[in-house]
Amino acid sequence: MTDQARAAQAHTSPGPDGDGVAATRRRPRRRDHRAYLYVAPAFVFVAAFVLYPVGQAIWISFFRWDGISLATWVGIGNYVAAVTDPALTQSFAHVAVLVFFYAVLPIVIALVLAALLQRAARLRGAGILQTLIFLPQVIAAVVIGVIWVSIYAPDGLLNTVLRIFGLGVATRTWLGDFSTALPAVGLIGTWVEIGLCLVLFLTGISQIPRELFEAARVDGAGFWRELFSVTLPALRAPLSVALTLTVVAALKTFDVVFVTTGGGPGTSTTVPAFQVYNLAFNQGRVGMATTIGIILTVLVLLITMLIRRIAPKDDL
């Protein structure tokens, strides 16, 4: 993971809506001008290297520009093209598929695993399992991409395993096949995100009063009933956190695609973040690239807000 969690985390860490404001109200009323000195260094950096380029990005998105010669004003032309040109819209369709693999799949798997761990409360090594399964989160996406390229290679681990089980017919070059390249990239995301979801859910479960489980079991609840009637309802908050983090990660996928497929075969694995880079620095379509970046940002913000909306209010 690179910086993709930054924004999502912010939603969930102590912030202005919480203790911060309440605490500050108790502060003496005097205005402290030295505060500007404290804030200035940080602000200068954010202003110069985030806010200013963000404003510029909006400006550039109204131009057709090759990045080296003079630009041509095209108004909202780039935005129109971005939502109508099939070559550009398909990258958004691909990222929707990735959301399934990065968010839905790991959340479902992690839920089941968390519930299993919960039932086998005295399972030895649960802590170690947690630690290990979380590990992909701290490894650079480039490294993860390199690892999976060799797993998916023609003579890689996946095909070898398939052959051992007599499934030789199923072997293929996973990243070079139109029907499997995108899911193959997606499964890398699943592998990475399971740990994050699992740890989130286990933490959530640890806060559920044990009596609830005991009671359910006295009633003779099996694994699935326990999962749906006790565990799941108590996990709404961690679920929304998991959903936010993983969906944002999916939307911003770049490193893994760059390393594993480069958008290919054909254009079957192009994603918006890859298009931002490729259009700007390979094809010299800087205005268009910037536009895609802005659309992507709006999507990220909208979706995080939406998830927050449907999440329970009380625990945030």
């Binding site: 806010l51 200013y52 380029p53 963000v54 404003g55 510029q56 909006i58 400006w59 550039i60 131009f63 520009w65 090759d66 990045g67 080296i68 010669s69 003079l70 630009a71 004003w73 800087v286 205005g287």
Partner: peptide, 20 residues
């Protein structure tokens, strides 16, 4: 506000500042 300020600061057509 940020967008407006930065655009004002930017002001000119991209690419116009370069000697080409």
């Amino acid at each position: 506000a940020v967008a407006a300020t930065a655009m004002l600061l930017a002001g000119c057509t991209p690419g116009s500042g370069q000697s080409s």
